[in-house]
């Protein structure tokens, strides 16, 4: 047990070291951009991980919240002239409020209806950004979004500096995921995923737990969107499309739902594969579509879930498999 724990810590240390050294090793600015974007997506996927991996609710409006964060930063810096940092804070607050409101309404529904409802919310956000020309510039999008302002001597004009900025937020996202996972809140979330009825029966406020998970997920998405805007300097309505949500879902599934490493592993690995298959651009989903189907069938825990899967199989050993649980009448949720 102790050995495995320290091995895991070592792996994280090495990953962090690799993250710190990467810009020195990656000479090509294009690859650095690909890497930075991969980290930004990973931050968004950490959000999806909390709502889907922890609490088991499939939220298909995730890219919408990413878009809210991105456009908040884009519009506030361009039109109002606020500094990136103030705009970032505004993006966090705004996605939090939007997430709270949407969560408050959406979470009255469960399971399938929740997925459909959140998808509708995502489409509404996408359509609004796409059609509201006078505010968002519609299809044209926003260009020349200023880079983050310098903090004292630290300027973010260079791509390397912005990479490190993204890295800081990524580390925060991974840390927050880990801290939540190990806290009573994380336990409550995982309990809700396994059985809402049982969770309610033992006194876990199911609704409040799901709402918290949903708001957290939207905040992660909003931060990722804000960084996206500040990093790239331009934005279009495409980033809020439902296909972006599906991409993030793919990253999460490949990496591993409900784990701390999953979102990062998935975003980087799929991002790298996408680069390798670049000649294949339009047809990548010919491969990734079936990959998604195969993963969910045979490896629902993703890559990061494989060790746990093996451990579980070993544990099961000589004991007979547990009895199938009988259905329990649906627990009523508080409103």
């Amino acid at each position: 047990m102790r050995l495995r724990w320290s091995f895991r810590r070592l792996a994280w240390m090495l990953a962090l070291l690799a993250g710190l050294l990467a810009p020195l090793a990656v000479g090509n600015p294009y690859y650095l951009q690909v890497l930075t974007l991969g980290l930004i997506w990973a931050i968004g996927v950490y959000g999806l991980n909390i709502v889907l991996g922890f609490t088991g609710q499939l939220s298909l409006g995730h890219a919408g919240f990413f878009g809210i964060g991105a456009y908040t930063v884009g519009l506030l810096t361009l039109r109002v002239g606020l500094s990136f940092w103030v705009a970032l804070l505004a993006a966090v607050v705004l996605t939090m409020i939007a997430g709270w409101l949407v969560g408050w309404i959406c979470l009255r529904t469960r399971g399938h209806a929740f997925a459909i409802f959140t998808m509708a919310v995502g489409v509404i956000i996408n359509l609004l950004i796409d059609k509201w020309d006078s505010l968002t510039n519609g299809q044209v999008g926003l260009v020349n979004i200023p880079a983050p302002n310098a903090i004292g001597p630290v300027s973010f004009d260079s791509a390397q500096a912005r990479y490190y900025l993204v890295l800081v937020f990524l580390v925060l996202a991974a840390y927050a995921t880990w801290a939540i996972l190990r806290s009573p809140i994380g336990r409550a979330m995982h309990a809700v995923r396994q059985s809402e009825e049982l969770a309610a029966a033992i006194g876990i406020p199911v609704m409040r737990t799901k709402r918290l998970a949903f708001v957290l997920s939207t905040v992660f998405a909003g931060v990722a969107g804000a960084l996206f805007a500040g990093y790239l300097g331009y934005l279009g309505p495409d980033v809020t499309g439902v296909d972006i949500t599906f991409d993030m879902l793919l990253y999460l599934l490949v990496g591993g739902m409900g784990t701390v490493a999953g979102p990062l592993v998935g975003a980087l690995l799929v991002g790298a594969l996408t680069q390798v298959l670049q000649a294949f651009q339009q047809y990548q989903m010919l491969i990734f579509g079936p990959v998604l189907v195969i993963l969910i069938r045979f490896f629902p825990g993703g890559l990061a879930g494989i060790p746990a899967g093996i451990r579980r199989r070993r544990e099961r050993g000589p004991n007979p498999p547990p009895l199938a649980a009988e259905p329990i009448p649906a627990a009523r949720e508080e409103v």
Binding site: L58, L249, G289, L292, V293, I296, R297
Partner: peptide, 24 residues
């Protein structure tokens, strides 16, 4: 017999595949 979300995710996979297939 898998959790509800699994079938939904699988159908998303099928969807992505079919669109790419038509494009191809």
């Amino acid at each position: 017999n898998a959790p509800q979300v699994h079938a939904m995710i699988a159908s998303v996979g099928v969807m992505l595949f079919l669109e790419a297939l038509a494009q191809w």
